[in-house]
């Protein structure tokens, strides 16, 4: 499916089939979660990243069903490039109303970057000035988990992590997504 068609689908669904909520509600709710995690784990930021990823994973497992129902595409993506376009132009579009750029493909087409020009989660945010958060905390890490969980449900095992974030002072916010393998329909373990 061409990228432009994916854009059209995303736009169409966003306009007609999505219930909207106030953006600040989302931003503040997510912010509270991250801030509370930081407090609960006593500023152990790697652990906070892990927890966010785990929460996202559990969201992704459920969200994919909603995505498939709304996007109404029964057709499977024919390759990983198409998957990437659908993630950006349909998935992110209908849930967050953003379309991150899909770039930096590796030559084997198994790994790409999502570059976020805007990130509704990170509005207003300033990372704690304790000398560590800037280097350790991936504020929007929940998104990695969402992608991992959602793609796992459609037989794709991926690995996703952020490699830069404007909150840390980088020029862009960039997430790296790598396909590890297509999960074959596994047979139940045999009894010997």
């Amino acid at each position: 499916m061409a990228a432009s068609k994916a854009s059209r689908i995303g736009e169409e669904i966003w306009k007609t089939r999505i219930d909207k909520v106030n953006a600040e509600l989302v931003t503040l709710t997510y912010g509270t979660i991250v801030a509370q995690l930081c407090k609960d784990f006593e500023d152990d930021y790697p652990e906070v990243n892990r927890q966010l990823d785990k929460m996202g994973y559990n969201i992704g497992l459920r969200l994919i069903e909603d995505y498939l129902a709304k996007s109404n595409t029964m057709k499977r993506c024919s390759n990983f490039r198409e998957t990437a376009d659908m993630i950006s132009r349909v998935g992110f579009k209908i849930f967050l109303n953003i379309t991150p750029q899909v770039t930096n493909w590796t030559t084997d087409n198994n790994s790409f970057s999502l570059v976020f020009d805007e990130n509704p989660f990170a509005d207003f945010v300033e990372l704690p000035d304790d000398g560590r958060a800037q280097n350790e905390l991936w504020y929007s890490n929940i998104l990695c988990g969402v992608l991992r969980g959602a793609l796992e449900m459609v037989q794709m095992q991926v690995e996703a992590h952020f490699i830069s974030d404007v909150l840390r002072g980088n020029d862009t916010t960039e997430m790296r997504v790598t396909l590890i393998r297509y999960i074959d329909d596994e047979l139940p373990p045999e009894d010997d």
């Binding site: 997510y30 991250v34 207003f124 990372l127």
Partner: peptide, 10 residues
């Protein structure tokens, strides 16, 4: 107001 919106500002 923008300062208060920052979740890390208590």
């Amino acid at each position: 107001v923008r300062l208060l919106q920052n979740p890390f500002y208590d």
